[in-house]
Amino acid sequence: MHAKSRVAIIGLLMLRAASATSVPQLSFEQLTDTSDLIATGSVTQSWTAWDAEHKYIWTHYQLSVSSVKKGAAGSSVEFAEPGGAVDGVGMDIAGSVSYRTGENVLIFLQRMPNGYLRTTGWGQGKYSIDGAGRLRAAASLRGLEIVDGKSAAAAPVRSLDGMTVTEASQRIADRVRAAQSTERGQ
């Protein structure tokens, strides 16, 4: 085979990371709009079970509802996260968020195709409420790039992290009203 040495520098490439994320980051607006139920409350119990297809194990939680910010719920609501263990079989699905009994939360829930309510955006919809009534985000999912410097291009909105429940509730209510107005105007 011919071995040749022909070198021509045609310029350096600055390769940057692709914008792919394991889980898309949701802005506050997206988080609110895509959630079917937003509520505060306390987790009262949990259990595990296979789903209807006997394909995935889910950990189910019961939330004693204190207040509903979006959607409709009774005094308690059941939601679930994939993963857990049943009958000696453990199943890990990377990235699932978990809850502990007695935990106070502001939670964004989305109805899944299998009918379960699940935390919106892999933990992005979970905020623990500390003793002072402030929110603490469970997961950082800041994966999106912000593009187009010097313009006011759409950018992900930082989470509700650090807000009081009252502040967050007002913001959610404003967003829900805005979204409803948009729907009526269409």
Binding site: S22, E53, K55, V89, G90, D92, I93, A94
Partner: peptide, 21 residues
């Protein structure tokens, strides 16, 4: 399936590790 989509929950991909407890 509905099960798959529910477990994905919007993620690009998931790995389902099943183990014995």
């Amino acid at each position: 399936t509905a099960s798959d989509l529910s477990a994905l929950g919007g993620a690009v991909a998931i790995t389902l590790d099943s183990y014995v407890t």
